[in-house]
Amino acid sequence: MDSITTQTDLTALYGVSGVISFIIYIILAIALWKVFAKAGEPGWLAIIPIVNVFVLVKIAGFSMWLGLLYLIPIVNIIMHIIVALRVGKAFGKDTVFSVFLLWLLSIIGYLILGFGSATYDRSRIA
């Protein structure tokens, strides 16, 4: 840091990105709330940051204990792809929807699942 101005600029940038990240998280929590409710889970669990991952794993048809795989680097990416594919399948969506909208652009995908006409059927993934 050369000057106090540079440090102030960085602090302001962190504040803006923090606010944007918080807004994105709120939108994702609202989308997950609706998805959880459609799947028969308590919607308020979408608000709790780590618990929502475990519930999403349960909705994908796995044991909630497999949510611990999200803590292992590289394995978490593979697990997230598998969960996205299975959640999409449980809601009657195809592989393209699951990969692009539940894995890459998850906010948009979960908003579509939560507020759209898709219904959850666990027998689709069994």
Rank of each mutant, 00 (worst) to 15 (best):
V83I: 15
Q7S: 04
G109L: 00
G92E: 08
V16D: 03
I20F: 05
P42A: 05
G40C: 10
P42E: 09
I77N: 14
L85P: 03
F97R: 14
F100N: 08
F91R: 00
S17D: 03
F91E: 11
I78G: 15
G109H: 06
G43R: 06
D2H: 07
Y70M: 12
N76L: 01
L13D: 08
F115L: 13
K58H: 11
I4T: 11
V55C: 04
I50C: 12
A126Y: 03
G114L: 07
L10F: 14
F36K: 08
P42W: 06
T6M: 05
I59F: 02
G61W: 01
W103P: 05
L28S: 13
A60E: 00
A31L: 00
T8N: 02
G88D: 01
G109N: 09
G15C: 04
T5Y: 05
V99S: 12
L102I: 01
A118N: 09
T11Q: 04
A118D: 13
Y120R: 11
G92W: 10
P73Q: 05
G88Y: 01
V16R: 04
S17Y: 12
I20N: 06
D94F: 01
I48S: 02
D2P: 07
A84E: 14
K93P: 01
F54C: 07
L32R: 12
L105V: 07
F54Q: 12
A29K: 12
H80Q: 15
P49K: 01
I24L: 14
D94T: 03
V35N: 06
R122H: 11
I27C: 14
G92R: 12
Y70W: 15
S21N: 15
V19Q: 03
I125S: 00
V57D: 03
P73V: 00
L71W: 14
G114W: 01
N76C: 13
S3T: 11
L69Q: 08
L69T: 06
L105F: 14
A39L: 09
W33N: 10
M79D: 11
V55T: 09
S3A: 09
I107N: 07
A90S: 09
L69A: 10
L101V: 09
A90W: 00
A118C: 11
G88P: 02
L56T: 08
K34I: 03
V53W: 13
L10T: 13
I112T: 01
W33S: 13
I82R: 00
N76E: 11
I27A: 15
W65N: 05
G88T: 02
L68Q: 03
V51F: 10
I24G: 14
Y110R: 01
L104R: 15
R122S: 15
I47N: 04
L111F: 07
